[in-house]
Write a protein that binds this DNA or RNA. Structure first.
Lengths: 240, 240
DNA sequence: CGGAGAGTTGAGAAACCTCAAAGCAGGTGG
DNA sequence: CCACCTGCTTTGAGGTTTCTCAACTCTCCG
């Protein structure tokens, strides 16, 4: 993922990384911002396919994605694994590890990526001093919970077409918020990964995309998606 | 739900309510505990069917369930609603409201219940002073995220039998942690509500329960469940 | 005792999955 | 630079699971 063309949300981010998730701006003055920057100075890069962390590893830090694209996946006891999310620049991952001091899922780079490490001890420390930061951290965690509820709803009560429409619209909206086109984008993940995330088999994902294309909702060429009829796509999700 | 017969986890809870979720004990000394107690002194009771809060209401406080049983449900834009969780004594609800300062789901009492209100401003304030409490709050939120991932996995990759087995084992484990029998318990929710939570129709829930009974895994009489073969029930969830 | 909500059960339909085969794209090594 | 190989994607046919619609029963209250 290249740098956004023109994105006001990104401009207000702290200089070293996007600690704040987009749409959740935090109110910090210059000095406070410096402290936050100092906290988030450790950066690392990952090649496509590399693991940022694995299930079971000790928890030390949260990670803010600076550039690139990740997926997180949880493994079942019986070996089945399920993608629990796709993460874009500006988003925070690792929150699920706090409760047990160990990561409960894997995070894998879907393309060459750069992240910014946020030592959790020090984040907690700093957030005791900066109530704005404290509240912001709570909001990020709460937002993750709400997001998960949305996915539960999708998995529990939507049909394949609705799930895929919701998925594409969500991607579109997130790309758009980062200054990219909401109508045309590149999928970083395989059909299998999309299916895993949406509770569908890869063949169903492929068939449904083809069907969307036949009906003129969008055009797909392998991983290149162009949404042609945003309104009709939206009507899949909202209405029955 | 009556008071537990003999439950060590509850004994270490603060006196006025179970702020800590079970299995996540917090390390506070006497004075700190007093401060926490002062925070959580407001109690309220609810009759079966009453709403603790509704989607859209302003967010002011978290709620610890002291006695009783709740469900939380999210409403779709199109009117569909989905149960996102069932809550028992000692559990905290309302975390999803932090991110937007408004509740994003309804909380409904499934039986006469008593809760303890925790004003969030003051909880944040106190957790700035007490690092142990701060970490504990973060763990509670993180635990909610992990729980939700578990449900996503259930919804995305399990069949009806597996989902129901997982659901019953989860209830059993939670009752057990509260000092009740893990083998025999009363369901507080309807088939419809179970189905909504598990992404199934009520008829499928009913049929699957009947099938479990036929196979000698458990006995069901409407809402009274007795698990007869815990191991075989477990094998549904772990194995293929 | 009657009514309303909850639960059970059956039959047929719909959605999605499984298995299989073939086409495509991108990377690697000759 | 091309050919090949591997992994990803598409499409088809048939099977399973779950849903839908419907009728009936049960249980709990008033």
């Amino acid at each position: 993922m290249q740098s956004p063309v023109n994105n006001p949300s990104v401009r207000i981010a702290c200089s070293s990384c996007n600690l704040r998730e987009l749409c959740l701006p935090v109110d910090l003055d210059g000095h406070e911002m410096q402290q936050l920057d100092a906290l988030t100075s450790l950066k690392r890069t990952f090649r496509r396919g590399e693991y940022l962390y694995r299930s079971g590893e000790a928890f030390r830090a949260l990670y803010a994605i600076r550039t690139g694209f990740f997926k997180t996946q949880a493994l079942h006891e019986d070996g089945r694994e399920q993608v629990t999310g796709f993460q874009m620049p500006g988003e925070i991952i690792g929150l699920d590890a706090i409760c047990s001091d160990a990561h409960s899922c894997d995070a894998v780079a879907l393309e060459d990526s750069e992240i910014c490490e946020i030592p959790f001890d020090r984040l907690e420390e700093l957030s005791r001093e900066l109530p704005n930061l404290q509240r912001h951290l709570h909001k990020i965690m709460s937002r993750e919970i709400v997001r998960d509820h949305g996915i539960m709803m999708l998995l529990g009560s939507m049909r394949a077409e609705e799930r895929l429409a919701a998925f594409l619209l969500n991607l579109s909206q997130r790309f758009s918020a980062r200054g990219y086109s909401p109508n045309a984008f590149h999928l970083r993940m395989t059909r299998q990964e999309i299916g895993s995330y949406l509770g569908l088999k890869l063949e169903t994902v492929s068939r449904t995309l083809s069907s969307f294309q036949e009906h003129g909702l969008l055009s797909v060429r392998v991983r290149e998606v162009e949404i042609m009829d945003m309104l009709r796509l939206r009507s899949f999700v909202v209405g029955a």
